[in-house]
Amino acid sequence: MPVTTLDPKTALVVIDLQNAVAALPGEPYSTEDVINRTVELADAFRKHDLPVVLVRVSFSADGGDRPTGRTEQQGRATGTPPAGGDQIVDQLAGHPEDIVVTKRNWGAFHGTDLDVHLRRRGITQIVLTGVATSIGVESTARAAFEHGYHVTLATDAMTDLAAESHNHSLTRIFPRLGESGTTAEILALLS
């Protein structure tokens, strides 16, 4: 369903726009384009005194806080994370009023205080951006829906490692979880 409205108490939730992730190539949008569009949204949310939540993923050097379990995909990262890789990109960092949430899973709700931050502020809707569409963004959208939030997905302010994964989330999953719109469409609703 195309984006129709934003609740008076809406927060922007930005997934994994941090240095290590920003260095990855994105499809169908470059991570640089996603960051630029997210900055536009963040500036507009701040201008309207609406919360901006910057979610980052980070693990300890020994990997003891990484999710466990068997997977078919090899190559789960271990060892010392790159210095500064878990820091929010400069284009979004440096706003003391923003909320920073650190996660250790795909989604931003499980094992974090995201829900507490949102509920204490009376938030009823979230607008999601970030990387990767089919992983962190989708996992967070699913949990937000399950927590009773209205979910809006900024379709051109998110990207994935593969265009097919991005498109699958947009066409098959997101219509079941909320409304989708471009950055321009969401900005128009903020005006």
Rank of each mutant, 00 (worst) to 15 (best):
residue 1 M to S: 12
residue 1 M to F: 06
residue 1 M to I: 13
residue 1 M to R: 11
residue 2 P to C: 06
residue 2 P to S: 10
residue 2 P to D: 10
residue 2 P to K: 12
residue 2 P to L: 10
residue 2 P to A: 11
residue 2 P to W: 01
residue 2 P to G: 07
residue 3 V to A: 14
residue 3 V to H: 09
residue 3 V to S: 08
residue 3 V to F: 10
residue 3 V to I: 15
residue 3 V to G: 07
residue 3 V to C: 11
residue 4 T to A: 15
residue 4 T to Q: 15
residue 4 T to C: 10
residue 5 T to R: 15
residue 5 T to V: 14
residue 5 T to Q: 15
residue 6 L to F: 10
residue 6 L to P: 03
residue 7 D to N: 13
residue 8 P to C: 06
residue 8 P to V: 07
residue 8 P to Y: 05
residue 8 P to G: 13
residue 8 P to T: 08
residue 9 K to V: 04
residue 9 K to G: 04
residue 9 K to I: 07
residue 9 K to S: 10
residue 10 T to D: 07
residue 10 T to I: 05
residue 10 T to M: 07
residue 10 T to L: 07
residue 10 T to A: 11
residue 11 A to T: 02
residue 11 A to G: 07
residue 11 A to E: 03
residue 12 L to K: 03
residue 12 L to C: 09
residue 12 L to R: 01
residue 12 L to P: 07
residue 13 V to R: 03
residue 13 V to S: 04
residue 13 V to Q: 04
residue 14 V to M: 02
residue 14 V to Q: 00
residue 15 I to N: 12
residue 15 I to S: 04
residue 15 I to C: 10
residue 15 I to R: 00
residue 15 I to G: 03
residue 15 I to Y: 01
residue 16 D to I: 02
residue 16 D to M: 02
residue 16 D to W: 02
residue 17 L to C: 07
residue 17 L to S: 03
residue 18 Q to F: 00
residue 19 N to T: 12
residue 19 N to P: 05
residue 19 N to H: 13
residue 19 N to G: 02
residue 20 A to L: 10
residue 20 A to Y: 04
residue 21 V to C: 13
residue 21 V to D: 00
residue 22 A to G: 01
residue 22 A to E: 01
residue 22 A to R: 01
residue 22 A to S: 07
residue 22 A to N: 00
residue 23 A to W: 04
residue 23 A to C: 05
residue 23 A to H: 04
residue 24 L to Q: 14
residue 24 L to T: 13
residue 24 L to M: 15
residue 24 L to P: 02
residue 24 L to H: 13
residue 25 P to D: 02
residue 26 G to D: 06
residue 26 G to R: 01
residue 27 E to L: 11
residue 27 E to T: 09
residue 28 P to V: 11
residue 28 P to M: 11
residue 28 P to A: 13
residue 28 P to R: 06
residue 28 P to D: 12
residue 28 P to Q: 09
residue 28 P to W: 09
residue 29 Y to T: 03
residue 29 Y to S: 08
residue 30 S to R: 05
residue 30 S to W: 09
residue 31 T to D: 12
residue 31 T to P: 10
residue 31 T to M: 15
residue 32 E to C: 11
residue 32 E to L: 14
residue 32 E to Q: 15
